[in-house]
Design a protein around this nucleic acid. Structure first.
Lengths: 343, 343
DNA sequence: TTGTATGCGTTATCAG
DNA sequence: CTGATAACGCATACAA
């Protein structure tokens, strides 16, 4: 910066001010400074800037390492978050949290390296969120805790998603509908999608008077096969299956076919919180409801930036706190069709 | 840090020295300082530390945004890289590079925010690499340029992978083998996997006197179907297919079956640079060769750290420059079997 | 073995 | 509209 100042014949503070723009600078000097910066290829030192301004322009993305192997939509989310951050002049650091989520979260914010935190894969009772609430670092959740009233979050609208899914199926005449969900472990761990889809499914099915059967299973095709076998053993009259588990879905489809049932002639399959790309891997192409990964990534980062850069009042009062619920979008493939006439 | 020093009854520099360990501190004072840090929950300010020491403890991960939609192994790679960095006390910032790779790379290193750069999805002639060579920021490549002699890289050993793939197939008696690759565009863009697998396949096939047919296609199941149809139109006597394109592979399998051929009775399918997890989505389960995503992530970061923290001689001479090639690992599924006897 | 003092490259306050 | 200059929080050379 000194070099730039010298070359432009001004003081360092003037250079700083043309960069920050917080105080008026005459056009002529501004141009001289700009020219000097261009010829020198000058870029502000990010560390010094952060130290002096108490703003690092770095955000952290907290995500649980390894568990459930992070799906494809997770990658879409991460990419979208990184791009959004960058578009606003911010960096995004990836912060895998392991077993001891709480301590790791605390250490992260105390380093004062990041201006804000985006928390992925939030659980109903998430120690990371508890820890963040204690500190003064702004954060937003992707997903929600059990009681997210005062917290800014963006999440999938599981209620609407399940409603839309059942609308699609009942519209085709189905009345006996199964649910193939994530593992029972994820349910007990308070993993949002598992818990909320289950609750919504049970509620909606009751309201509509549907007959249902529910199975939880691990994230593998083999587990999906086994679960579906049990499902049809329990309720052979199922004509449709809603799945919440990409890997298991493929096993489920195979098992249904192997069991002598035709898709969608005898059984319809609808994979929710998935994506058309994944659906296209199946043959026939799966009917899916796409998780809004990219949209959540963008929303999460933008609302976080609003809290960081907005007037202090916003951060303090929590006014305009983001509460965004986005449903999955239905993409009708070839695995859902009219219910068989039971005549 | 002042608070810690006051509480421990020492000077700030002493606190700093117990943290850095670059000069001996008596056991008693060290313990007093430790105790003070514990009770205060002290963590060093990352920005100040970086500014003073000229070391940010931050690495950048350069990856091309959106193109090819980043596969599942890419996520495995990113996660592994982030975890490795963290285990060594480093942060990893995600840096999506768009159209203007070169300028973005230059701006990044000039900010002096990062101590080193990991470059993903390196192309044969990669402007990002050219730019990095001009600067003095250490970097490692995941993938390689056309002439990577002096550059540190970790990459898939495509030669060995293709060799192992053909060994597996010829061992089963196959002599007529097709290749379903990435898009022609990726070939022209100099995308490493596309270029190197193609070269290895042609060379190995010639050496073994195999009859081949080759198709490039986009990363969709539909494109895979179309390409396979052409493949068999051109050479109906194919008994095996090597695929380098996860999405297209699923279309390929469907097309083969629809075409009245049985897998693996009539045609064997082997998906390379893939993963058993993806293979398990297919029914019957695909024989795959797994890309070493996690291993590459770890290697890339660790070799970068060696250059950053190692003696200056290492960085200067390029001694012990990483040149690591890792083959994909064969996982035999149910889509490869003995070649049909042509009697 | 420990303390003092300077500098890292900006931002921001205080003058002019 | 512009220029000095004191923080920012730590690392490190220099003293003791």
């Amino acid at each position: 910066m000194q070099d730039v100042a010298r070359l432009a014949g001004v003081s360092v503070s003037t250079v700083s001010y043309v960069l920050t723009g917080v105080r008026p600078v005459s056009d002529t000097t501004r141009q001289r400074v700009q020219a000097a910066m261009d010829t020198l290829g000058y870029q502000r030192n990010a560390l010094a800037r952060g130290l002096a301004s108490r703003r690092s322009h770095i955000l952290a993305l907290l995500f649980p390492a390894i568990e459930r192997g992070l799906s494809g939509t997770a990658l879409e989310f991460v990419t979208s978050a990184a791009e959004t951050a960058r578009r606003h002049g911010y960096h995004l650091v990836l912060w895998p949290t392991g077993a001891d989520d709480e301590a790791e979260t605390r250490d992260l914010v105390r380093q004062r390296l990041v201006d804000g935190v985006v928390v992925m894969e939030v659980k109903l009772h998430d120690p990371r969120v508890v820890e963040l609430q204690r500190g003064d670092t702004p954060f937003t959740l992707i997903g929600r805790t059990a009681d997210p009233a005062g917290l800014p979050y963006a999440d999938i609208d599981f209620d609407a998603t399940v409603r839309d899914a059942l609308d699609h199926l009942t519209g085709l005449g189905h009345r006996h509908i199964g649910l193939l969900s994530h593992s029972r472990g994820s349910l007990q761990a308070g993993y949002g999608p598992t818990v909320r889809v289950l609750a919504a499914f049970e509620r909606e099915a009751r309201q509509r008077g549907l007959l249902t059967a529910i199975r939880h299973c691990d994230e593998t095709a083999d587990a999906g096969r086994a679960a579906v076998a049990e499902l049809f053993a329990e309720r052979p009259d199922l004509t449709a299956l809603v799945t919440l588990n990409d890997n298991a879905t493929f096993g489920a489809v195979a098992q249904i076919v192997d069991g002598g049932r035709r898709i969608p002639g005898d059984v319809s399959v609808l994979s929710v919180v998935s994506s058309p790309q994944v659906g296209a891997l199946s043959h026939p192409r799966l009917t899916t409801m796409a998780a809004p990964g990219a949209r959540l990534g963008r929303l999460g980062v933008e609302s976080l930036l609003a809290r960081i850069e907005g007037p202090p009042a916003v951060a303090a009062t929590g006014a305009s706190t983001l509460h965004e619920l986005i449903p999955c979008r239905l993409d009708v493939g070839a695995t859902t069709g009219p219910a068989p006439t039971t005549s």
